[in-house]
Nucleic acid binder design. Sequence first.
DNA 1: ATATATTTGTCCGTATGTATC
DNA 2: GGATACATACGGACAAATATA
Lengths: 244, 244
Amino acid sequence: MTGGAMLARGRGVTVWRQIAEAIEAEIAGGGLVPGTRLPTEAALTERFGVNRHTVRQAVKSLVDKGLVRVTQGSGTYVEAKPLSYPISTRTRFSEIVVGQARDPAGRLLGHRQAGASLEIAEALDLSPEDPVMLIESAHFADGVPISWALAAFPLPRFAEVPEVYGATGSITAALSACGVPDYRRASTRIGAAVADATDSARLEIAEGRPVLVIDSINVDPDGVPIQWARSHFCADRVRLTVGG
Amino acid sequence: MTGGAMLARGRGVTVWRQIAEAIEAEIAGGGLVPGTRLPTEAALTERFGVNRHTVRQAVKSLVDKGLVRVTQGSGTYVEAKPLSYPISTRTRFSEIVVGQARDPAGRLLGHRQAGASLEIAEALDLSPEDPVMLIESAHFADGVPISWALAAFPLPRFAEVPEVYGATGSITAALSACGVPDYRRASTRIGAAVADATDSARLEIAEGRPVLVIDSINVDPDGVPIQWARSHFCADRVRLTVGG
DNA sequence: ATATATTTGTCCGTATGTATC
DNA sequence: GGATACATACGGACAAATATA
């Protein structure tokens, strides 16, 4: 038995592609649940009766499709299916995650006071160099990093934001503590980039993977801008939706 | 005169970064209009009194920021500032481009009849393998590629789409010729990826640059799905906006 | 159409300052 | 302090793509 019984050689479909499709079918069919580890390269090599490089090429194609993630020294893991992330006037990270039966978390990475840059000043209707509170945070679903963000809040009104956010992991709670019971999304700009070293570390993805970069402005019920944010989403783990 | 009078060495800011910021300031200040060519590497080398490699690193950082584009053998050129692309129920490429004082164009790359894939069948409310017309097209602003798309239309209702689109470069005109005077966007899903060989060729960008991948469904006034499309936007040349 | 010059891309090096352990 | 790794800065040669005469 030389293995590779299901492989059709010399019929126009490369071997690595057949292997990739076989694994993909297992994932789609539910045989491989998100989070589980794929068989090792050695095991796949034996199972399909091919060279290790062929298996690696197949796995690489699945990585490029965002279906699996490889961690050197650990193994290859099935990715969760992308989070569907609606962009609306009432966009709340935790509500979106809970709505898809997953467990949200937010973590404060750091904060500092600074003068508003030109961009932030314009977004928040301030003058340049007016004091703002900058906070960096990371956001997770089921423990997997989804996004990280740099956000700016006008001072002195929102001086307590870092403290409350650090304790609760919730922007909604932090704003509420500052006397803003509700807020809504006033504008959203969406771009894309490739992950740099920071994205790579915070999102636990390789440099060069795609990220969605979203600039947003939230306003209070009176329409006064209270938060500017630039969020970096791991594009492999999220699909933004608007309308329908 | 050894050049580089405005460079501050040994003060914590690297030389290549100072050069990049100097060029960026010229672009922001209007001294370098979009489309114009930057001085050659040799010229910048002399002007700043540094090694060519240092200039190249500065230019590379501007490329990564999407401010300039380099073409081997030709030069490096200032990029146009990104097109602001609103996503709404009434999204029309040509209207958006004209609204920003730029010149839109659409080109038919190819078309073929095929059976609907699972994804397309679901989007258009058909059964799998029902006949659809697939067309590939590319879209430009001022002659610069902005996006390309694969679109599917139900048959036989939209058999004439390729012919009219090929002649006019307008989806609106093609649908109108098939008896659909108006249509609206029913759903939009946004993801991101890195450019593959196809994206690279059609958008005239390097492989590995970011692209925005947008799946959209358009419906006629009765709410019947008439078009599914997967568009690939050059992320360096577009910012999607929603709301505000 | 062909040849030449121009311009960027890549590779081989060397040396130096800085951060880290 | 010493060892090490890494990014920066510089020098030169040639290849590849483009522009031009």
